[in-house]
């Protein structure tokens, strides 16, 4: 750490603080940063490096680790289960996030009206994203049940065929996406609403006077204020779906036939069920790298959009 090298950011208090610095001042600044970064290094960097090391060994808990170099990675890349898990993870991410963004924008406009009771409606809509994904998955599993589930009952009531949710490879994946959309569309809606709140009212009034079409209004007036919140929503949602674990784990356990098994679930299985720690570490590193690539692309997109909106560098 480089506390000694600190310079005053602003005039006034910082210079006054510099003046009061001395021996106690140095200790004070160390106290501000050293414990936090010490703990974070210990909890983040050390495990990550350790895990990179483990991924180079054939190591099952209870046996002696054997150096295999890139062997785990080679095995992984020739394992059809790995490619299936990668495909499933990407499918979930693309399907869930795109539906969430479209519905999130629509619901954002619906929630942007003003009338009595809107406070309660908003609270209800924002509730799902605050709940534990595991609990959400649990009660959706109850609702998706083949025999007594409410979802199939309602479908047949409106004349549609019952769907083998959670049993059929295709519909099980749809179910996971449905649950994610139910829980996380509110998050996109929340950010869209925040963006809509920054649109200047005089712009809207002018557009109404000019009888601008709805599409023109959206494109010309709302969009500039929605771009940043939407990119932010896209960033958070993509990352969270790429590491998705809880809801497919509880809904289907990764089945049927691993068709809802995400990369996180595959890694967990190697670790906890097969005790194949080296392989689990290798898979988890793939998740880290994919998320890093996606994050970097999205952050590049965000950076020009946020100029003048948020001052801290992402």
């Amino acid at each position: 750490m480089t506390q000694e090298a600190m310079v005053s950011k602003r005039d006034g208090p910082a210079t006054a603080m510099e003046a009061a610095a001395g021996f106690r001042g140095v200790w004070w600044r160390r106290l501000l940063f050293v414990p936090t970064f010490g703990l974070l290094l210990l909890l983040a960097i050390v495990p990550l490096i350790f895990s990179l090391g483990i991924s180079l060994f054939n190591y099952s808990i209870g046996s002696k680790p054997i150096w295999v170099g890139l062997g785990n990675y080679l095995n992984m890349f020739t394992d059809p289960q790995f490619w299936l898990a990668t495909r499933v993870t990407v499918q979930f991410t693309i399907a869930a996030v795109s539906i969430e963004v479209v519905l999130g924008i629509l619901f954002g406009f619906v929630m942007n009206q003003r009338f009595t009771g809107m406070g309660i409606i908003r609270l209800i809509v924002f509730l799902p994203m605050m709940l534990a994904p595991l609990v959400v998955g649990l009660f959706w599993r109850f609702m998706f049940d083949q025999t007594f589930g409410i979802v199939d009952y309602l479908l047949t009531q409106i004349g549609l065929p019952a769907i083998p949710w959670l049993i059929d490879p295709f519909w099980a994946r749809v179910a996971v996406v449905v649950v994610d959309v139910w829980q996380w569309t509110p998050f996109v809606t929340l950010l869209v609403l925040a963006g809509l709140g920054t649109v200047p009212t005089d712009l809207l009034e002018a557009a109404t006077l000019d009888r601008a079409s709805n599409w023109m209004k959206f494109r010309q007036i709302y969009w500039p204020y929605l771009r940043f919140p939407l990119l932010l929503a896209l960033l958070f949602r993509s990352i969270d779906t790429l590491k998705m674990f809880d809801s497919p784990f509880i809904l289907t356990g990764g089945g049927p036939g691993n068709y809802t098994s995400t990369l996180s679930i595959l890694g967990y299985r190697h670790q906890i069920m097969f005790f194949n720690v080296g392989m689990a570490a290798a898979i988890s590193w793939v998740v880290v790298i994919i998320i890093n690539i996606v994050t970097n692309i999205l952050v590049k997109l965000i950076t020009p959009a946020k100029v003048g909106q948020v001052h801290t560098g992402l």
Partner: peptide, 19 residues
């Protein structure tokens, strides 16, 4: 610090389990 928000839990599960 922000990038820690992106860190997938699965990545730290293995080392933490062993430690």
């Amino acid at each position: 610090i922000l990038s820690l928000r992106m860190l997938p839990a699965i990545a730290v599960v293995v080392p933490f389990y062993l430690v």
